[in-house]
Amino acid sequence: MLNPGAKASKESDSGAPVPNPVSGLSFEKVFSNLTIAVLGVFFAIPMLWLVLASVDRRATYALKLPLLTFANFLAALQPENLGALGNSIIMSVIATVVGTVVAFLAAYSFSRHYIPWKGPVLLAILFLSGVPITVLIVPMYEMFSYAGWLSLVPTAILLAVTAMPFQIYLIKNFIDAIPLDLEEAAFIEKAGTLRVLRSVVVPMTMPGLASAAIFGFVNAWGSFLLPVVLISDVDQQTAPERLYGFMSSTSVNYGGIAAYSIIYSLPVVLLYVLMSRHFKAGFVLGGAVR
């Protein structure tokens, strides 16, 4: 929900600001460093547990030195757990592709064409991006169950749609910022709209499309509620649901849970690390709304 055209977003991705050139009192420095250290501990401790427990043979919820083992990762990679990860990948990829492509087409039209009531329509789309997904579950459940769609692919499409309002907004802002000259030239040469989109607009909007795609992926990957309610086939359950099943099982394997949740979290974190190198603003914006 940030304006990607904004200057600041383009600059910041690490969140590490340029140090203030004005050198303050040493007290100020000490105080700042102390504050940061304390906050660092606050941010580190929960993650530290996750890492230590994942390699601990006798893991519990306590923070302690591990009895080193990799058995937890082996347990986490059991076929049914891998299957759940595979389902998450299928669902997230479908949601990403559908959402981004559809949003791009609409965003281009909104950016370049005359559309009646454009302002109100865009405003309505903006509102949709702020609606919590929870409100959709009852009507969607009724609709999907009536149509016999309680499965992975329709749910992926729905997830694409839940990300779409923000994606339209994001991409439109990027297209708004590109100069018209190249497109005009292409149209003068009588190139068709789709061809212009493919060979002129898409390359120039790449950072925006990447942000939108990442947003779509993160949105679908982290989604817990919709797949739980809308996918009835147990073989199609996704990774977060599997992780939750682990957590509420009668025999809790803390090490296995920690290992599985690391494996499950890794794609999103890696995506951020890789993408932040390429598209400065990309992921920052992409992850703004989970």
């Binding site: 459940y141 169950s145 147990v234 649901e241 099982s249």
Partner: peptide, 24 residues
């Protein structure tokens, strides 16, 4: 075999969801 994961409440909810459509 249709094994349903989760704790008691989640199991019961999921079961209700399965029962709600004839095909599942």
């Amino acid at each position: 075999l249709i094994p349903i994961p989760g704790g008691y409440d989640d199991f019961t909810t999921k079961l209700s969801l399965l029962f709600n459509s004839h095909s599942t």
